[in-house]
Every structure is written in C-alpha cells, then in structure tokens.
Amino acid sequence: HEITLHINGRRVKLRFRDEKAAEILKEAAKKGLDEEELKKLAEELWR
C-alpha cells in the first residue's frame, strides 16, 4: 500500500504494509515529523 502525505507543502509518498502502519504514519505527520523521519519510520514499520 502507499499513502501520500502533505508535509511542509510537499507531497511525500510512503509505503506501508497495513492499516495500523498507515495510522502510525498519519499520527507522526500530525506531530510534526519531517520527511526524513517519516521515511525512516515507514521503513521500520515495513519490517
């Protein structure tokens, strides 16, 4: 699955395995994680 989040006016595509991962990524984006941090988090969730 993929999700596209808008971060600092940019579109960031993240891959994720399940809905739980999608929710975690959305929450992290709301908390203000930047693009690099979100990509790292997405990679961690993928494993």
Rank of each mutant, 00 (worst) to 15 (best):
A42V: 04
I7W: 03
L5P: 00
A28V: 04
E2I: 15
D18P: 02
A28L: 05
K20H: 08
L25T: 01
D34M: 10
H1N: 14
T4M: 08
W46V: 03
A29W: 14
G9E: 04
G32S: 04
T4I: 15
L25H: 01
A29L: 09
E44Y: 13
E2Q: 09
R17D: 02
E35T: 09
V12I: 11
I24F: 08
E44W: 11
R47H: 14
L45R: 01
A21W: 03
R15M: 09
K39I: 14
F16N: 02
R11D: 15
K31G: 12
K31F: 10
E43V: 07
E44Q: 11
K40E: 13
E19W: 13
A42S: 08
E44F: 11
E44I: 12
A42E: 04
I7C: 05
E36A: 12
L33F: 14
L38Y: 02
G32H: 05
I7H: 03
R15S: 04
H6M: 15
K39L: 14
E27P: 00
K26G: 05
K13A: 07
E27D: 13
H1G: 15
I24R: 07
H1Q: 13
E44S: 09
L41M: 11
L33C: 05
D34N: 14
A21K: 02
K40H: 11
E37R: 12
R10L: 09
L38F: 03
L5G: 00
F16R: 02
E19M: 11
G32L: 06
A28K: 05
L14S: 00
N8S: 06
E35S: 08
F16G: 04
R10P: 00
K20S: 11
E37P: 06
A42N: 04
L25R: 00
A28S: 07
A29P: 01
D18T: 14
A22C: 11
R47D: 14
A42C: 05
R17P: 05
D18S: 12
A42P: 00
V12S: 01
E23Q: 13
L41N: 00
K26L: 13
K20Y: 12
G9C: 05
A22I: 08
T4E: 12
D34G: 14
D18H: 06
E37H: 12
R47I: 15
K40L: 12
K31S: 13
L5M: 07
R47E: 14
D34Y: 07
E43Y: 09
R47F: 15
K20W: 10
